[in-house]
Amino acid sequence: MENKDSKSEMIKSMAFRLFLDRGYDATTIRMLSRAAGVEAPSIYHYFGSKKGLFYAISESYLEDYQELLKESMKHWGADPMNQILGFVKFAVWYTMNHIDETKFYLRYRLFWPAELSEDMEKHFHKTNDQKEDLLRDAIRVCIETGSCKVDEQTAYRSLINFVDSCTFNIIFSNWRPDEQELIETWQLFYQSRIKLGKGDFEL
């Protein structure tokens, strides 16, 4: 007999695919129950609502992301530039190895369904705060030591834009850099936007 955990995980797995491919608004409880092979009351029993199911899915992968990031951080050392580069490497690795999860995040981080709009910022804040705290702490040290010639906010936004550019190129342009290519790309970005604080950079 299928236990509660396996049934709820199966529902989440099928719902993830529907939410990713069709979108939240276009996915109904009826579609979800058909895809998962369960009666609609089972979905309400485990998750309370479609919204509850959505948040259960996104919370699962956000927690996985946070744990993977924490594990990666153990290998970056205390040097702030190594920490920033470590985050860039992690972001690229994660995207290449978790394409669907990244697409899901981007879809619902950038285009919130109306039903979820009041909760989405709060829902994603822990992951966003984790990344922002990490980068800003490293940037402040780089500014103090002279390895960063721009102000904290400019450096932070530039780094986020760089990581976003990497993410979009992996997903939409099938970019698959090896470590050497990624480091070379990072060095070009760092020299133009962080160290010298001038010039344009296009990935």
Rank of each mutant, 00 (worst) to 15 (best):
I84T: 01
A26V: 00
I84E: 00
S6Y: 14
D79T: 05
S33G: 07
K70G: 02
G146L: 08
I57Q: 08
S117P: 00
Q187C: 02
A15Y: 07
R109V: 05
M14P: 00
N3M: 03
I29E: 00
T27C: 03
M14G: 09
K50R: 04
Y108K: 03
Q130M: 15
H123L: 10
G52P: 10
D178F: 04
E67L: 09
E115A: 13
Q66R: 12
Y46H: 15
Q191Y: 09
I143F: 05
A138V: 03
H75I: 06
V141D: 02
M14Q: 07
W112G: 01
R107H: 09
Q153M: 09
K74A: 02
S173N: 13
I139D: 00
H45W: 15
E9Q: 12
S147F: 11
G77A: 02
N161G: 14
R109S: 13
K12L: 11
R30S: 15
A91L: 01
L20R: 09
L53M: 10
C166T: 02
D129I: 08
F201C: 04
R22Y: 12
I57W: 01
V163P: 04
L85F: 14
Y61V: 08
K103V: 03
F16N: 05
F104L: 11
W175H: 02
E39Y: 11
E2F: 10
N82F: 07
T145I: 13
Y55C: 09
E67P: 00
W93K: 10
L62N: 12
W93E: 12
Q187L: 12
F87L: 03
M14E: 12
K198V: 11
I170K: 02
I43F: 06
E121G: 15
E181D: 11
E63A: 08
A138L: 02
L62K: 12
W175F: 14
F16G: 06
Q83W: 05
E184H: 11
L69W: 05
E179N: 07
E181T: 09
Y105R: 11
R30K: 11
M14V: 07
D178C: 04
K4M: 06
V163Q: 06
F201H: 00
S58H: 10
L110G: 12
R34P: 00
R107M: 04
A36D: 11
S58V: 06
L159D: 04
L69G: 06
Q66G: 12
F87H: 11
V163H: 05
Y105M: 07
Y65T: 12
T145M: 01
W112D: 07
R34H: 13
R34T: 07
E2S: 12
D25Y: 08
D119Q: 05
L18G: 01
I194T: 01
P113V: 03
G37I: 05
